[in-house]
Design a protein around this nucleic acid. Structure first.
Lengths: 137, 137
DNA sequence: TTGCGTTACTTCGTGCCGCGAACTAACTTG
DNA sequence: CAAGTTAGTTCGCGGCACGAAGTAACGCAA
């Protein structure tokens, strides 16, 4: 494969730009990045902890603590699962749902400012390629 | 400006993909992301702490602690500045320089795997646009 | 020169984040 | 039923980063 010089660094820079802005948006909704990501996964449907662990790339104890903190803020709730009494579903509270929806809207509105300097057709091209890479459709 | 639906989410996904892979590469060199970023800024020339604070987007105490931990590992060194006795330059040790260079090479080699599934011309297009957005030349 | 505001950095206390190891309870299989 | 597996928790640790408060050095003005 043809190497593109400096691409590695460019990707790190890009990712840092996105993370910084995303963290700011989260903070504006009084959320940490980790809590925001948890909330977004859970705000529209309940999920098993094991599933969350996989999606977030966290080991069990890390997830457990993250849920503890988020539950303490009243955004999320453990619900014991009827089919398997060992297991837990995590759901969002009404407050969590509300905040999660607001965050999602804000991310959609403000994060793309990062590419605002590009001409419109480049912006569309970039968005398409990024969607391709991530598999986010 | 024309909104591109879902772009906010796509950017978060992209950034997460990059961060996860980058963290893995750092871990392979026994570095945390924060320490790696510090080391990369310092490995080719000394820098003032104030400059680093600005570049890394950290407040003073956060940087101070990060440097403490990195210094404890022998990768980096505080050098008091002759011109201004309040100030500090941060330099990399020979070990730090070596590890930093190895990391940099590895990032260049392995991080672009993220875009490996794209056809070659799309890859080049994406790289160009990303460079444009970040201002990484 | 002496004093005063500013700047550069550190220390302290706090809280979030995430890991491995060890544990408990519940399911499953022989 | 016994043994092994699975889902989740707890504990102790270390990294990360903040605000508030402190210290030392600089620079300027009276």
């Amino acid at each position: 494969m043809t190497d593109i010089p400096g691409l590695g660094n460019t990707l790190v820079c890009l990712s840092t730009m996105i993370q910084r802005r995303y963290a700011q948006i989260c903070a504006d909704h009084d959320l940490t990045v980790a809590q925001a990501q948890l909330l977004c996964l859970v705000k529209d449907r309940p999920r098993r902890l094991g599933e969350l662990s996989h999606l977030l790339g966290l080991a069990k104890p890390g997830l457990s603590g993250l849920i503890d903190r988020t539950e303490r803020r009243g955004l999320v709730q453990r619900v014991s699962c009827a089919q398997d009494r060992r297991a837990c579903d995590l759901t969002s509270t009404p407050l969590g749902k509300e905040i999660g929806d607001a965050l999602h809207a804000d991310v959609g509105a403000r994060l793309p400012e990062i590419v605002a300097d590009l001409p419109a057709d480049d912006r569309a091209t970039f968005a398409g390629l990024a969607a391709e890479i991530t598999g986010c459709h």
